[in-house]
Write a protein that binds this DNA or RNA. Structure first.
Length: 737
RNA sequence: GGACGAUUAGCUCAGUUGGUUAGAGCGUUCCCUUCACACGGGAGAGGCCACAGGUUCGAAUCCUGUAUCGUCCACCA
């Protein structure tokens, strides 16, 4: 053995290679070394690189712990980041968490009720918010711990929270500007009301469930109308039919008809409108504008009266006569009974299947209601103050909807896989005004103040100060997606013109799950477009959902969430990472199996043993030794692989890149190169030995670099034991073939 | 009703723009503890790539249709 090499390699370092690779003993220590190096912060990178590469972490909700979907997201992003960092970019990956207003509040309300049998009203706004904040803080700490365990190389010095001071200022500023441009307005419109959580819910937060029930055919004067909800029919005084329906040709638009209804005689008005489906039921319907979106639209179209039937708790109002105050669930059978007694029921179809809307957060059955709420107008033209968006000049007129369409159709932002572009555009084309006010407590309070006792509700919108006692703040909070819509730039210091904002925005890539394309991606495009006149990111990479063994979505409500820490503890973070990237194609779901993770744990050990072979059989390699023709060929093989892997990474084919390195190291490097080295190292020709030593050492070293974004811990640990290495592998330069 | 995706080994899934013999992990059969590694090595079994047509010199890959499963959107008065 070369005595010099002996010196550089204290025996204690070599000793750990005599045992199988132990991730548990390694990972925490390595992560600490990375953090202490400061290299997660782009300001500290060696050689002060100039070209930026930035990603904002989709902030996990502080509703508990991370699941495997988060883990998969972290892996893909960390691969992108580590790759770019090694390629010499000024690489920023910015962490943060999301207060997730309604989700977090509903979680804490659940705990509060389970443990103390109390509601938020028992505690009052202030005390309740203290509880939520304590819960959020605890979740945050767990989440950060989990994120670090995955090896994510995030710049913690820039960590943000959607509800912290800076982000709150951004939210209030954004609100004010949009209000002043008339893009935020207060209006009485039909909204999704959740009677359980007593708040509005956005269209995207609804789940549709099939329900089997009865469908009633009711006699309505000369007509028969169909309904699944007789309890909403008290105020129905408009009867609608298709203008070309010959069965009802005798009736004219606007005609009044006296008829006997649930609680006595009423006068109905005939409306003729082509939106009625002649094939459905009897081709005639009555409308309930207060509690149905389409009925509301009809009422607006013809200027019809709208009456509220059901209150905010789901109980009937005085218009229901004897049923007033009764919950709709209880009232329905009673009402049907009365209708039958009056001879108004023509027939009942018992096996009617229809969809009901349920809040995906609180689980309450949604009751549409007309309410005074705050909305973002997506169709109102406004003047773009400044613009860096190709094809949209500063000073031009546009609408938020057009803006959201343009960013994708113009290719300014690219969505991977591209079939989601179509889905996105379809969604935007059908977008309605966005209801942004919520009647919950946890979140950004709407920055609007009303003059106390003022008849005209004098309004003050102020982002940066609280007015005096003669003003009263709007009690509502903002939809959580309002603040996350600002995420790409609020995290970089906006509304202040910070150097970070200038350098890192627009961000390079947004990597997230396809399930929040509408919730979030669309809103970020809206917000960045309006406030900055820019795109929020150049590329959107949508990963699939991680599902459980049965292919079910992992969710809190199903209770099938796997804590990534369990897998890390058993198999190591590197193995968990590999199993989450291999087979993970964009837009397609991935099923998690523990066997797969175990397989990659074996791979980590394989690398470990390759290292041991090289340390003992090829010490003190001479970098200037000449390659034999065979070794030159081996080197060329590796260079081809490196080129391939680089291309795959640049084109977002992480799964392929990972598999290629895996196979190269196992089937080529270990099985072929090492095996053929054994006889070669006994050669009598010193040149053959020196060439092979150099090949083994250099190709292995470069292989570690290629593998590092995928398996950062084991590669960094081996790197430190390589002769002649000074800096950490995370800032080594990527192999350039 | 509309759109999109999937269907490949016993199981879970890759297969980048059509191109030799279709791959991986796990499982499975047989052999092997020789000094990188039994968390290993070697050898093997296992596939009409959902089905039916078509394009092509050539199709798991492109086109048309069918079936089954899944997802999203809309609607259901």
């Amino acid at each position: 053995m070369n005595p010099e090499a002996e010196e550089r390699k204290p025996s204690s370092v070599d000793e750990k290679f005599l045992k199988p690779y132990n991730p548990e003993a390694t990972e925490k220590r390595i992560y600490q070394e990375w953090e202490e190096s400061g290299f997660f912060n782009p300001d500290n990178l060696p050689n002060d690189p100039q070209e930026p590469f930035s990603i904002v972490l989709p902030p996990p909700n502080v509703t508990g712990t991370l699941h495997m979907g988060h883990a998969a997201m972290l892996v893909v992003q960390d691969i992108l980041i580590r790759f770019r960092r090694m390629r010499g970019f000024r690489t920023l990956w910015l962490p943060g968490t999301d207060h997730a207003a309604i989700a977090t509040q509903s979680k804490v309300e659940g705990i509060l009720y389970d443990t103390e049998k109390k509601t938020r009203h028992d505690l009052g706004r202030e005390e309740f918010l203290r509880r939520v904040e304590a819960f959020a803080a605890e979740s945050h700490d767990v989440i950060v711990d989990q994120v670090k365990k995955m090896g994510a190389s995030l710049d913690w010095s820039r960590e943000a929270y959607t509800l912290d001071e800076k982000r709150s200022l951004a939210v209030r500023t954004a609100f004010k500007r949009m209000y002043e441009d008339g893009l935020i307005y207060q209006g009485e419109r039909i909204v999704n009301w959740d009677p359980k959580m007593k708040t509005t819910v956005s269209d995207e937060e609804l789940e549709h469930k099939e329900e089997r029930g009865s469908f009633y055919y009711l006699k309505y004067g000369p007509f028969v109308i169909g309904t699944a909800r007789p309890e909403t029919k008290f105020g129905d005084k408009y009867v609608v039919m298709h203008p070309e329906d010959e069965r009802y040709a005798a009736y004219t638009h606007g005609q009044k008809i006296d008829l006997e209804w649930i609680n006595g005689p009423i006068t109905a008005t005939v409306i003729k409108d082509a939106s009625v489906d002649r094939e459905f039921g009897t081709g005639v319907m009555t409308i309930t504008p207060w509690h149905d979106q389409l009925d509301f639209d009809l009422a607006e179209k013809y200027g019809l009266d709208k009456e509220q039937i059901i209150d905010e708790r789901g109980c009937l109002l005085p218009i229901a006569g004897e049923f007033a105050g009764t919950h709709i669930k209880k009232a329905r059978p009673l009402i049907v009974e009365k209708l039958k007694a009056k001879g108004l029921v023509e027939k009942v179809d018992e096996n009617y299947v229809h969809n009901i809307s349920v809040s995906s957060r609180g689980g309450g059955v949604i009751e549409p209601q007309i309410m005074k709420q705050w909305f973002v107008n997506v169709n109102k033209p406004f003047t773009l103050r400044h613009s860096r968006i190709p094809g949209l000049a500063a000073g031009s007129q546009t609408t938020l909807k057009e803006l959201m369409l343009h960013v994708i159709t113009s290719g300014a932002t690219e969505i991977i896989p591209d079939n989601f572009s179509k889905i996105y555009l379809h969604f935007i084309n059908n977008l309605r005004d966005w209801c942004i006010s919520r009647q919950i407590w946890y979140g950004h309070r709407i920055p609007v103040w009303y003059k106390k006792g003022s008849e005209n509700r004098e309004i003050l919108v102020c982002p940066d100060f609280a007015p005096d006692d003669s003003w009263e703040q709007d009690p509502d909070t903002l939809d959580t997606w309002f603040s996350s819509g600002l995420w790409t730039f609020s995290t970089l210091g906006w509304p202040e013109e910070t150097p970070d904002l200038k350098l890192y925005h627009p961000t390079s890539v947004l990597e997230t799950g396809y399930d929040i394309l509408f919730f979030w991606v669309a809103r970020m495009i809206l917000m960045a477009g309006y406030h900055l006149g820019d795109i929020p990111f150049k590329t959107v990479y949508l990963h699939g959902l991680v599902r459980d063994a049965q292919g079910r979505k992992m969710s809190k409500s199903l209770g099938n969430i796997i804590d990534p820490r369990t897998l890390i503890d058993k198999y190591g973070a590197d193995a968990a990472r590999m199993s989450l990237v291999i087979g993970n194609t964009p837009g397609t779901d991935i099923k998690l199996s523990e066997d797969k993770v175990r397989g990659y744990k074996l791979f980590a050990n394989k690398i470990w043993n390759i290292a041991r072979f090289i340390f003992t059989n090829a010490p003190g390699a001479d970098p200037s030794a000449a390659y034999t023709p065979v070794d030159a060929e081996r080197r060329a093989e590796f260079d081809a692989l490196a080129q391939d892997v680089t291309k795959d990474l640049e084109e977002y084919r992480f799964y392929m890149a990972a598999e290629k390195i895996y196979h190269y190291l196992w089937d080529t490097f270990a099985s072929k190169i090492i095996e053929e080295s054994k006889p070669l190292m006994k050669s009598t020709d010193a040149a053959v030995i020196e060439s092979r030593k150099r090949l083994l050492t250099e190709v292995f070293r470069d292989s570690l670099k290629l593998l590092h974004p995928f398996m950062p811990f084991v590669t960094e640990e081996i790197w430190k034991s390589l002769p002649g290495t000074k800096s950490l592998l995370i800032v080594e330069s990527w192999p350039r073939p």
